[in-house]
Design a protein around this nucleic acid. Structure first.
Length: 284
DNA sequence: AACTGTGCCAACCGCGACGAG
DNA sequence: GCTCGTCGCGGTTGGCACAGT
């Protein structure tokens, strides 16, 4: 394997950058710009290859970079974009001002991926979703992405749950095989066939109305249940915008009002209407 | 205190794309 | 159409820091 051509021409330093080298690079670029990267080391007086200079500037020294921890919004966006774009880190990073592809990639590999997998694996053993136990036993970590993609899981549609709850007059918790009963023939499941189309969610005001009119206080219609369950199969949706994305039937103002409400009559389950919300077990 | 395992992240590597000649 | 130089991307590695034993 030969080195990159620009690294063959001269004796170049490798490894971590010293503060002195950083200073030289910063000073040079701030005055002259980077221009042609391959000739920059020679022009600036650095014993590095141009590629190394470029990487150091882009990933660490550029004043446009935002250092520090990823915010919940950023995590949400990364997870959602990764679901759509895969490992195209540069495309994902372009949507995150001040973040680099390397940073996003590192963060994904060391935080999100691990948490999603461990979360998914541990939850599979105790999952209460209708189809899981019928289809899977001894699921390996390596098999999970395939499982996720192949839609083995059937997630109750929250709209269906709300409607059923209204029909029976109390908050309805979908269970299996109860759903096989004819009385639930209209019960529908969430459709994830198109990753670009977010699942339809109930109107938040409708949910609130039912909440307030329900006589039950112990087992309310709890949208948070869906977040937790959904995270098993479609992790990005937990971080993603599906609970809050204003669709045709969801008004942003209503959602914002509900998410910021401190009223005791609004159950904690409605936290999923807050775009900043992450389940505590998934917060890095 | 010494050793080992693990996580994190900066940096490197190989490769493909692209433009100039 | 080809070669060469350059750039940018994604995968991988190396080494540091820290926790656990």
């Amino acid at each position: 394997m030969s080195r990159h051509s620009c690294c063959n021409k001269q004796q170049v330093r490798r490894g971590l950058w010293s503060p002195e080298e950083d200073e030289i690079l910063i000073n040079y670029i701030s005055i002259y710009g980077h221009g042609c990267w391959s000739s920059l080391p020679w022009r600036a007086g650095l014993q590095r290859c141009g590629k190394s200079c470029r990487l150091r500037w882009i990933n660490y020294l550029s004043p446009d970079l935002k250092r520090g921890k990823f915010s919940h919004q950023e995590i949400s966006l990364i997870t959602q974009l990764h679901r759509i774009l895969g490992n195209r880190w540069s495309l994902i990073a372009k949507q995150l001002p001040g973040r680099t592809d390397n940073e996003v990639k590192n963060f994904w590999n060391s935080n999100i991926k691990k948490k999603l997998f461990s979360h998914a694996v541990s939850d599979l053993a105790i999952a209460t979703l209708p189809d899981i136990s019928n289809h899977h036993s001894g699921v390996s970590e390596a098999a999970l992405p395939m499982i996720i993609q192949e839609e083995y899981f059937q997630l109750p549609n929250p709209i269906s749950v709300l409607q059923t709850s209204k029909n029976v007059g109390t908050p309805y918790v979908p269970t299996w095989p109860d759903l096989e009963n004819e009385e639930h023939s209209n019960f529908t499941f969430m459709d994830f066939s198109d990753p670009l189309v977010m699942p339809e969610m109930p109107n938040p005001m409708e949910m609130l109305d039912f909440e307030l009119s329900s006589s039950s206080s112990s087992s309310s219609f709890n949208a948070a249940t869906y977040e937790v369950d959904t995270s098993v199969c479609f992790p990005s949706l937990v971080y993603g915008s599906y609970p809050i994305v204003p669709t045709n039937q969801m008004d942003r103002n209503v959602a914002a009002m509900m998410s910021s409400s401190s009223s005791a009559s609004v159950p904690c389950g409605h936290l999923d209407l807050n775009p900043n919300y992450l389940p505590s077990n998934l917060i890095p």
